[in-house]
Design a protein around this nucleic acid. Sequence first.
DNA 1: ATACTTGCAAATGATTTGCCAGTGT
DNA 2: ACACTGGCAAATCATTTGCAAGTAT
Lengths: 147, 147
Amino acid sequence: MAADVEEAVAAVRARGLRLSTPRRIVIEALFASPDPVSAEGIAGGLGGRLPKSDLTSVYRNLEVLEELGLVRHVHFGHAPGLYALASRDEQEYVVCERCSRHVALPADRLKRARAAIRDETGYEVRFTHFPLVGMCPDCAAGDGERE
Amino acid sequence: MAADVEEAVAAVRARGLRLSTPRRIVIEALFASPDPVSAEGIAGGLGGRLPKSDLTSVYRNLEVLEELGLVRHVHFGHAPGLYALASRDEQEYVVCERCSRHVALPADRLKRARAAIRDETGYEVRFTHFPLVGMCPDCAAGDGERE
DNA sequence: ATACTTGCAAATGATTTGCCAGTGT
DNA sequence: ACACTGGCAAATCATTTGCAAGTAT
């Protein structure tokens, strides 16, 4: 479901939405970023790789695309939300709250943890929208780095 | 470590800090709330139970008390941060991202999940500062409620 | 007396909303 | 043509910062 820009564009049209230039740029930006990007990053044109756009429109388009199920966003700690293609963001994240280094994990890598949480709480959790937070091995070992 | 207001006051003094009226009120508010409260809740006097205070001072005092290790705060989804006594907040939380219902868990209840995550990622995670997010049994069953 | 604190105003950062002009279909 | 969008300014929300006046020790 939406493996490239044209497919995403088609999905947008299929829902009766229009395809304006700013909207197309947002879509392209998402396909151009291997990692989740902030709205500001997209508005800034990914640092020159794409035309800049209005930040408000970027937010509004991300919202629309998220409703369509094409986009999703993650919150790393207190940082601004980061957006990514839903098709690509089947990953879960763990962030270090000391050095803010983060690791992306394939979808079912934390199956065991999820099952343990389900057993204990009844909740079906995911670490996609709000990632796991903790200490990375280095910071836990005592020597914090970065940030 | 700080089981009642006077002990907390003593801890503050022991670190060479002054004990002003606003600061004492923040401490009392934290002891008076069984659940985590927002800065605004404290400034509002917990709805009449305590004198109101200036929101800025509340934030500043919470910050100081957090540095002393007396206080800690949790982020439930996008909601404002909630503050609680560190001695009481050895709990971890699971929130439902649909109905926002949450459950507090005793400190070691998620031991297994934490261990699984440590095995898979090397990270030592805790669900105290940023809680677990997922779907509660009811919402997962299809019938969302509240909010 | 002298730092530490307060309280009010103003700044900040992320995101949203209002509103009217612009434009895709 | 007409509803959907864009862009810019202004609003919001939670939190922080500046700074002069107040006060605990």
